[in-house]
């Protein structure tokens, strides 16, 4: 049978396969498109930032050191905005990292299969909620809650704590889900080795599985931080409008993203210094997230393949 079903001639000559070429070209195009987009963004950000810093009212040293951002009177110090971004991000990560890791360890090491199969999709639904919903959740639930806990006179209506906490809740499933994938990827044989030595489940997960999954977990955390830095809607709604330099998380402050969103939504005319300033902020944001990505790459590279 078998052989008789093939054409009788043995032909080994190279054939042209136009379909292969077409697909390959298309895929290359997709890859190039995203690279070109990124390049385009960098070019635009760079050009407008150049114009901004070229203006005589602005100096780079003021931008980097001053704690006043008042475009109306020509003060362009990035610190009030940067500080608000760092505060909301820190608060968010204080929520998202421990809780996210806890969830991940529970799901991968403790949860029975049917519990896992129910919890993980549920958690991922949490990641699909639009950020505007989270924003109003912060404003109408978290802020009153904080006010009840710490007193109305301490907690302003708009404050970075509320926005940060809710942002943490939003990022939690991202960190939990990615970390769980990393934990699951740790070979069973390592867990068995630990158990066979008389380790408890807690000792096994914290001292053997967690260190082995460290590269994936740190990548998840960095991704979470990038997400927190770039988050706009929640902070626009709940953190406050108007740059102010404060270290008190119960006071209103405006993050870089929140400021960009507010200013660009208004009647900003092209090529004014205000207009250019938001590109400088965009550039700062870009540098931040880009460095974080770079750091995560280095971390992953360093810890890669710790287990076979």
């Amino acid at each position: 049978m078998g052989v008789d079903n093939f054409p009788p001639m043995l032909v080994l000559r190279r054939r042209s396969r136009p379909g292969e070429w077409l697909i390959q070209g298309f895929l290359l195009l997709c890859a190039l498109l995203s690279i070109l987009t990124t390049l385009g963004i960098v070019v635009v950000l760079g050009r407008e930032s150049w114009l901004f810093f070229g203006d005589e009212a602005v100096t780079l040293s003021e931008f980097l050191t001053s704690t006043t951002w008042q475009p109306a009177i020509g003060h362009f110090g990035v610190w009030p905005l940067l500080n608000a971004t760092l505060m909301t991000t820190t608060i968010a990560m204080l929520v998202a990292i421990p809780l996210g890791l806890g969830v991940a360890i529970y799901l991968s090491e403790y949860a029975a299969p049917h519990v896992h199969d129910f919890l993980k999709p549920t958690l991922e639904v949490l990641a699909g909620i639009p950020t505007v919903v989270y924003g109003y959740f912060a404003l109408t639930f978290m802020t009153p809650l904080l006010q009840n806990l710490f007193g109305r006179e301490t907690v302003e209506i708009y404050n970075t704590a509320s926005a940060g906490l809710v942002m943490g809740i939003m990022i939690l499933p991202l960190i939990a889900s990615l970390s769980e994938d990393a934990l699951r990827a740790v070979p069973r044989s390592l867990r068995e080795a630990a158990y066979a030595l008389g380790a408890t489940p807690l000792e096994t997960s914290t001292q053997v599985v967690l260190p082995a999954a460290l590269s994936g977990i740190s990548a998840a955390i960095i991704l979470g931080i990038s997400r927190a830095i770039g988050e706009t809607m929640i902070v626009s709604i709940a953190a406050g409008a108007g740059p102010s330099f404060t270290l008190n998380p119960f006071e209103a402050a405006e993050t870089m993203t929140g400021h960009i969103a507010r200013i660009s939504g208004g009647d900003l005319s092209y090529n004014t210094i205000d207009y250019n300033s938001i590109f400088a902020l965009g550039m700062t944001l870009f540098i931040f997230t880009f460095s974080l990505n770079l750091i995560s790459r280095i971390i992953v590279e360093r810890f890669r393949e710790v287990y076979e």
Binding site: S189, E192, A193, Y195, A196, A199
Partner: peptide
């Protein structure tokens, strides 16, 4: 856990910790 402390195990594929 106590059982495994008294009765150890060596596996088919060497599985040292990283």
């Amino acid at each position: 856990v106590e059982v495994r402390r008294k009765i150890g195990m060596v596996f088919q594929k060497p599985n040292p910790f990283p």
